[in-house]
């Protein structure tokens, strides 16, 4: 049953998101193609008279507009993804819930399916975001005959001599995944709490999201201050080689914190959907 739920969730969200992603990819390809053409004709322009300069200006303007569109598209991809996923869960606790909660599926399965699909599309949107940036880096590298990538590679090698890069990358990926999960579950909890005020569910859900965020921020700040004060004597005695691992430890602690939040959010939402489901 869970597999079928995942299938239908993927299909439903994919119907909206896939065209958005496809549009973004086309936009990036168009921008890259236009930049490449502009660079190509730009070299010709040094030899040519006024007419070439005129064509170049238009191409430059078009390239510039396309680049702006790509940057906006990168943000739009991430934002649209998050909005679609939030609306999906919000509507589950509204009119859509009349159908979905009449299926022989547990609330935990509903939540897990929504979470996994949210995670999948969030990762896809982040990959597209990074892919958009990478496309420009590779294009710039191509135009400059490999100078950009060589420079970046050199910087990375220099950095990796002093810092544990592999550990950073692994912890960064784990941190991103866990924080996306926690963010998605926080939205689910806010919507489930908002359900308790059926007359103003949207406002209540947004209010609950803000309240949860404040509580979590206060707890995180208090934990950081307390942890810092507790560890200060040890931190001051660290050698330079040991100190490079401090950011790694901080990132690991942050991931653990998000993991704890995930458990709390999931348990609270599950309890609300099991014991206090109110589809009014």
């Amino acid at each position: 049953m869970f597999g079928k739920l995942l299938k239908h969730e993927c299909k439903a969200t994919g119907r909206v998101l896939c065209p958005v992603y496809a549009g973004f990819v086309v936009l990036v390809l168009a921008a890259c193609g236009m930049l490449r053409l502009t660079a190509h004709f730009g070299t010709v322009a040094t030899e040519g008279p006024v007419t070439t300069l005129h064509a170049n200006t238009w191409m430059s303007v078009l390239s510039g507009l396309l680049c702006i569109a790509v940057v906006l598209g990168m943000m739009a991809v991430v934002i649209v993804t998050e909005i679609v996923l939030i609306v999906r869960f919000y509507r589950l606790l509204g009119d859509d819930g009349y159908f979905w909660f009449s299926l022989p599926v547990t609330p935990a399965q509903h939540m897990a399916a929504k979470l996994l699909v949210a995670l999948l599309w969030s990762v896809v949107s982040v990959v597209l975001f990074i892919g958009g940036m990478l496309a420009f880096v590779l294009l710039a590298d191509d135009i400059s005959d490999g100078a950009v990538v060589a420079e970046l590679w050199d910087a990375l090698r220099t950095f990796s001599v002093q810092w544990p890069v592999f550990g950073f990358v692994v912890l960064f990926i784990i941190g991103v995944l866990v924080s996306i999960t926690a963010g998605t579950l926080q939205v689910q909890l806010a919507c489930a709490l908002g359900m308790r005020w059926p007359q103003s569910r949207l406002g209540a859900s947004i209010g609950m999201y803000v309240v949860i965020s404040i509580v979590v921020q206060v707890l995180a700040s208090a934990g950081t201050i307390a942890g810092g004060a507790l560890m200060l004597p040890q931190i001051t005695q660290l050698t330079a080689t040991q100190a490079v691992y401090l950011p790694l430890i901080s990132m690991a602690c942050m991931s653990v914190w998000y993991l704890v939040l995930c458990v709390v959010y999931f348990a609270a939402t599950h309890w609300l959907l099991t014991k206090h489901l109110n589809l009014v």
Binding site: A12, D95, Y98, F99, S102, L103, P104
Partner: peptide, 18 residues
Amino acid sequence: GPATRALTAYLPDKPVLP
């Protein structure tokens, strides 16, 4: 719960299919 929903055919008072 899920077990009874497998035995219950429910038609709401408004159209709710996506």
